[in-house]
Design a protein around this nucleic acid. Structure first.
Length: 577
RNA sequence: GGACCUGUGGUGCAGCUCGGAGUGCACGCCGCCCUGUCAAGGCGGAGGUCGCGGGUUCAAAUCCCGUCAGGUCCGCCA
């Protein structure tokens, strides 16, 4: 005899009359004296009500097997909130499979629980419907992605977790070697180099749902360990690669949301920055950046004497209090702006009027230009940042989301592709351009001639996928030819020997017939969080770490025994005081 | 590395400005009552190092300084 015949949430009116067995945890017990008691039994699928004619010695979260007869509930006692609300179990034989202490917090969905408490008792927290649903949704997303990649001819290949230190962008986790004391493996920040080697090997289309590790500070959307769909393919154009990824993310959405989101729009990096002030625009709302540079081109106002003057129109923002505006100014400064000018718009009878510390110093033409460009109406607020172009865009782009946006997880789901990124993003301490993506990114063919002369103007064949203002991932066409790689290294001030030292095994492999190739990787944690309606990826990770990188359940990071340390050739350094 | 917010019985909160006995609310827990409830209901009870340390004061959950933990963000994250 099997121990259960039905899942709790799957008992229906079709089962009426049958003798069935269910297993689960006691969600709730309601006693009505010595003749009647109700036990709500819960498993991941839902709750079924068991009617006990008498008393029953069970408590919350006891683990039970209940054998009972399915009956329709008496007239007027059905419960619409339950999938099984029309039925209940009678003549129950209750077997206590295990007792349980009272849970450390309520498992009821309506209860708000302190996150540290949830993390300390994650095994209980994961019993809750929310977490069950999130992790099962994650499994469904993985399944859909695997299916999509398989259907598009990709081959799943695993790559090592113990890899060689290859200083790239992010800080790597190091693993000391026992057999080679004083030497270290690192955990991969991504399978980037491995998958490029696989292209040289002729695997043509590779993918992997890969764990990546980066020893950088944590955020709501960042954990040390995260999971990416990592893919690479040979002999494919940039557009083809984006199409492969698009299929995967649209299929994933369809699998868990039941409908296919709009096909992603494609926008250049330059356009995204100009219109939305960011390379990860949230396209669910407009409120685009407004260009005031012309209006203030010859201004006497010091605050606006800058290469770029841009603004946001906050409809209805005129109602903001002075202290709220002060906070906004502080926020702009935190984001790097020198300041933030604001103008409340009101109707003065004879036309629109400005209320602002700067209202008096504007000329009539500037005032007029401000109204014309923004199209502001009474009750609105205009905020203005004047600065270098990139900075002004970035600050307003961030404020745009904070003033007009909504949580990332709320629909609709608006994917977009951002293309034509700059190859280099600023310069390092020695004035050398730094790779925006990585050092193997293929320059835009039309811009190759600028590499030596104006490297910061070179566009890259790289592309990001963005969903509702979150960067899901990025990819690029890689450099497969040694001559172009030399040019890029030269532009970055990397001597040939240095490039060889850092990436030697890859460059060496490229000498043996590297095909043209490119790829992509996107964060599955972020994708699932958005689909699950969560604003934090910890909610879609079974055992996440806190912002300081601690695991409150296991106590990690922990200490090693002196013996273990010695075996690894490690000696604790006294803490600096 | 930095900014801000939070920390009060098992859980969620109030109390903190303006110092006066661990004061209050809801849930949970324990006991009793209750034959149709479903976040059941009624009565009773237990449960506290107010994160920790120091300072001010006759007196500190409350004011000050430091520190720890958690969160959000800046830096960082090719």
């Amino acid at each position: 005899m099997e121990s259960r015949t039905h899942l709790c949430g799957a008992v229906t009116v079709d089962d009426v009359g049958q003798r069935i067995k269910v297993c689960g945890w006691v969600a709730k017990r309601r006693e009505h004296g010595e003749h009647l008691a109700f036990v709500d039994l819960r498993d991941f699928s839902g709750i079924v009500q068991c009617v006990v004619e008498g008393t029953v010695d069970v408590r919350s979260e006891y683990v039970l097997q209940v054998e009972g007869t399915v009956q329709l509930r008496p007239e007027g006692t059905s419960n619409d909130a339950l999938s099984t609300g029309m039925v209940e179990l009678h003549d129950c034989t209750v077997t206590v499979l295990n007792i349980a202490e009272p849970p450390p917090f309520s498992l009821d969905e309506r209860a708000e629980v302190d996150e540290p408490a949830r993390l300390r008792h994650r095994f209980v927290d994961l019993r809750r419907t929310r977490m069950q649903d999130n992790l099962r949704m994650r499994a469904a997303v993985n399944r859909a992605i695997r299916h999509a990649m398989d259907a598009q001819g990709f081959c799943e290949i695993e790559t090592p977790m113990l890899w060689a230190p290859t200083p790239e962008g992010s800080r790597e986790f190091a693993v000391p070697s026992r057999q080679h004391q004083g030497r270290f493996y690192v955990l991969p920040q991504s399978p980037q180099l491995a998958k490029q080697l696989l292209m040289v090997s002729g695997f043509d289309r590779y993918y992997q749902i890969a764990r990546c590790l980066r020893d950088e500070d944590l955020r709501a959307d960042r954990q040390f360990e995260f999971t990416q769909l990592d893919l690479e393919c040979s002999f494919a154009t940039e557009a083809e690669i984006r199409s492969f990824v698009t299929e995967a993310v649209l299929d994933a959405a369809q699998a868990v949301l039941g409908e296919r989101p709009e096909y992603p729009v494609t926008m250049t990096w330059a356009e995204a920055l100009d219109r939305f002030g960011t390379d990860k625009p949230d396209l669910r709302f407009s409120m685009e950046l407004l260009e005031l540079s012309e209006v203030f081109a010859h201004t006497e106002v010091k605050a606006f004497s800058a290469p770029t003057v841009k603004a946001l129109l906050v409809e209805g923002g005129g109602a903001m209090s002075r202290s709220a505006l002060d906070k906004l100014v502080d926020r702009a400064k935190e984001l790097g702006a020198k300041g933030l000018a604001w103008f409340k718009i009101s109707d003065g009878g004879a036309g629109l009027e400005l209320e602002s510390p700067l209202a008096k110093v504007l000329t009539d033409a500037e005032r007029q230009g401000l109204f014309e460009v923004t199209g502001a109406r009474a009750g609105d607020l205009i905020v203005v940042v004047a600065d270098q172009y990139r900075l002004a865009c970035n600050v307003l782009g961030q404020l745009r989301v904070e003033l007009g946006g909504k949580p990332v997880s709320e629909g609709p789901y608006r994917y977009c592709w951002i293309i034509d990124f700059p190859l280099f993003d600023g310069t390092d301490a020695e004035g050398n351009p730094e790779a925006a993506h990585h050092a193997f990114t293929m320059p835009h063919p039309e811009d190759l001639h600028l590499l030596a002369t104006e490297p910061l103007k070179v566009r890259a064949q790289s592309y990001d996928l963005v969903l509702n203002g979150w960067e899901l991932g990025s990819g690029s066409i890689r450099i497969h030819r040694a001559d172009i790689q030399r040019q890029v290294f030269a532009a970055m001030g990397i001597a040939e020997e240095e490039g060889t030292a850092r990436f030697g095994f890859l460059l060496n492999a490229f000498r043996y017939g590297a095909p043209p190739h490119g790829g992509f990787a996107f964060g599955i944690d972020r994708l699932v969080a958005i689909f699950a309606g969560e604003n934090n990826i910890r909610e879609v990770i079974a055992f996440p770490k806190t912002q300081s990188g601690a695991d409150l359940l296991t106590g990690a990071p922990g200490e090693l025994s002196p013996q273990h340390m010695a075996e690894l050739g490690l000696r604790p350094v006294p803490k600096a005081t």
